[in-house]
């Protein structure tokens, strides 16, 4: 009986490994033509626009954005697969959360500016200690939450990012003045592929995977992630990371 269980587990592991390898290979194979399309469209849009009509430029931009959506979806799917296989690498090292947040905000400056959103990063009065984190993954968390805030906040809105330290944990807050999450849908927010109705209505891109990925990353760091939201008023996300 024990032998059978061991056999079953080995077989299960093999299937999981093959599934992971398949997903990784598929992701790589898909990225190749997507890269080509991305590069071609970028070259056309950056160089030859005097020869194109306004409508042609608009169409090319749409193609570029759609292509970017596919690339993002593959990234998210890869992350989700790795999470589920327990293969999400966590390489922790001492890092400054302040810097990760600052760099992330800087990275989205163009988009924030184009939407005329006012963004404020409130750093605490005392220096925040460095903590041992997987910087790439925590960066991903901030990116997902910040991108949601930007995506779902209308023009002239406001986003406030702040950090607080209580000696045991560092708490990050990202507050927006966006469309909010309807109360009856709030319990599903961390589910894979879930997007609230009002989010879908905005016709913006969103894979519905971001928060699932964030929750996994934060909890793998022994932190907590939660939110408060009111439809039409805005959403505030918090996550804590232990200082240990």
């Amino acid at each position: 009986m024990r032998k059978n269980i061991k056999k079953k587990n080995n077989r299960k592991e093999t299937i999981e490994r093959l599934k992971t390898e398949f997903v990784s290979l598929a992701a790589h194979q898909l990225r190749t033509p997507l890269s080509a399309i991305k590069w071609i469209l970028r070259i056309l849009l950056d160089n030859d626009t005097e020869k194109l009509t306004k409508q042609q430029i608009e169409l090319l931009e749409m193609a570029y954005q759609s292509n970017e959506r596919m690339i993002i979806l593959i990234n998210d799917l890869l992350d989700v697969t790795q999470i589920e296989e327990g293969r999400f690498l966590f390489k922790k090292k001492q890092a400054s959360l302040n810097k990760i947040i600052e760099d992330n905000i800087a990275k989205h400056k163009k988009l924030i500016k184009s939407k005329k959103i006012n963004i404020l990063f409130q750093e605490p009065k005392k220096d925040t200690p460095e903590i041992k984190i997987d910087t790439e993954k925590i960066n991903l968390v901030i990116e997902h939450i910040l991108e949601n805030a930007i995506r779902y906040t209308p023009e002239d809105g406001e986003i406030i990012v702040s950090i607080a330290c209580d000696g045991k944990h560092i708490k990050t807050t990202i507050k927006d003045s966006g469309i909010g999450i309807p109360k009856e849908q709030q319990k599903r927010v961390f589910e894979k592929f879930f997007r609230a109705d009002n989010a879908i209505k905005t016709e913006t891109e969103g894979t519905g995977l971001g928060l699932f990925i964030c929750k996994n990353i934060i909890e793998a760091h022994n932190g907590k992630i939660w939110f408060k939201s009111k439809k039409g008023k805005g959403t505030t996300f918090w996550f804590t990371l232990p200082i240990k």
Binding site: R31, S35, K38, W39, R42, I74
Partner: peptide
């Protein structure tokens, strides 16, 4: 990662 960068 090629898919994350433009040629420029």
């Amino acid at each position: 990662v090629k898919a994350h960068f433009t040629p420029e």
